[in-house]
């Protein structure tokens, strides 16, 4: 599958993560992570994001993640919502 537009989900409030996905030119999953706990959990957070993306079989995607200490379930939910929004044809109504 392919995403055609940029979309985001989540927030930068405590215990949350803000995920922004956009179409990438090159093949692959590129993840840029900013996190308060990057040293300890950076690779784990990236893995959760990556695994969630793989479920959608999306190949060209750039992810910007701004983490504020989100647990795995929240990372999964936010990634999923961002992708679903990016796959949607039209923008959401306000």
């Amino acid at each position: 599958m392919k995403i055609n537009k940029t979309a985001s989900s989540g927030s930068m409030e405590s215990s949350d993560i803000m995920i922004t996905v956009s179409p990438a030119k090159e093949k692959g999953i590129i993840i840029e992570l900013v996190s308060d706990v990057e040293e300890l959990f950076g690779s784990k957070i990236k893995k959760v994001i990556r695994d969630t993306i793989k479920e959608f079989e999306i190949e060209n995607i750039k992810v910007m993640a701004n983490d504020k200490g989100a647990l795995d379930y929240a990372i999964r939910a936010r990634t999923k919502t961002a992708i679903l929004r990016a796959l949607k044809e039209c923008s959401l109504n306000e």
């Binding site: 989540g10 379930y73 929240a74 936010r78 999923k80 679903l84 959401l92 109504n93 306000e94």
Partner: peptide, 19 residues
């Protein structure tokens, strides 16, 4: 908010499944 209905649903599903 209307624009967050999808996000809330997804977050709650994941939360109830794992917390």
């Amino acid at each position: 908010a209307i624009s967050e209905k999808d996000a809330a649903r997804e977050l709650l599903i994941e939360a109830l499944n794992s917390l």
